[in-house]
């Protein structure tokens, strides 16, 4: 029998004791008379974005993440939801030239921003060189992390070009392409199918570093 903790003492102590488990956040939330709990819709915010070169105007719940705005409102489902908590990178998009996790940012915070998603990089008929290279090098398997990997890869090459250092950079003032730089910089994009070496090969080719 484990040593009971203060809250669970009851829980562990007696099977007969009926315990309301949501004693924490939920209990507060359910307290009567709390404002904002009436059956009414959340206040909507107008949000204007430029997505893949197209201006869009949305009325959004302020809780809507950029990821859900793309997927559920604009039906741009190429951007994937793998964890929704910034732990996997599947939702990576490029905002104002920078790759970010679209799950950990609110759409309403991006008024006026330019967003590039996988759909903006290329289409099956007109592939972006990075998309083409992912196919050539089999840089994917199930395909779910792939759009995030590709958006990240495109941005990584720009980061290296711009001289932004990484954990793998030996001399902070000399930033240059290398496989280990790519591996470190791409580490925020998890691929459970683990096409990692193939992804690195694809990026290497696009960077023009392919020695093969």
């Amino acid at each position: 029998m484990p040593e009971p903790l203060s809250r669970r003492g009851l829980l562990q102590g007696s099977a007969a004791a009926a315990v309301a488990i949501p004693v924490l956040g939920e209990a507060q939330a359910a307290a009567p008379g709390r404002p904002g709990r009436q059956k009414e819709q959340a206040r909507m915010n107008a949000v204007g974005l430029t997505v893949n070169g197209r201006e869009v105007h949305l009325q959004l719940d302020p809780r809507t993440t950029l990821l859900d705005a793309l997927r559920e409102h604009l039906h741009l489902t190429g951007t994937k939801k793998g964890c929704d908590h910034g732990q996997c990178g599947a939702c990576t998009v490029i905002v104002e030239g920078r790759r970010i996790n679209s799950c950990l940012t609110l759409a309403v915070m991006h008024e006026g921003d330019h967003v590039t998603t996988i759909e903006g990089l290329g289409t099956p008929e007109k592939l972006h060189p990075m998309q083409r290279a992912f196919i050539t090098h089999d840089g994917y398997q199930c395909g779910y992390c792939t759009p995030g990997q590709i958006c990240s890869a495109v941005a990584v090459l720009e980061e290296i070009e711009a001289g932004i250092p990484s954990h793998a950079t030996e001399d902070l003032d000399r930033v240059a392409f290398s496989d280990s730089e790519v591996r470190e910089r791409m580490s925020g994009n998890i691929c459970r199918c683990a096409a990692y070496p193939n992804i690195v090969a694809a990026i290497r080719e696009v960077a023009g570093e392919d020695k093969a």
Binding site: G86, N101, V156, P165, L172, G188
Partner: peptide, 27 residues
């Protein structure tokens, strides 16, 4: 990536770059 930080406070650059991911550091 700031040039002064890289030069004079490299431990700060290094610590930052050891954290999170490129995407997270951008935000």
């Amino acid at each position: 990536a700031d040039k002064t930080v890289r030069r004079d406070y490299a431990v700060l650059s290094r610590a930052l770059l050891a954290g999170a991911s490129g995407q997270l550091r951008n935000k």
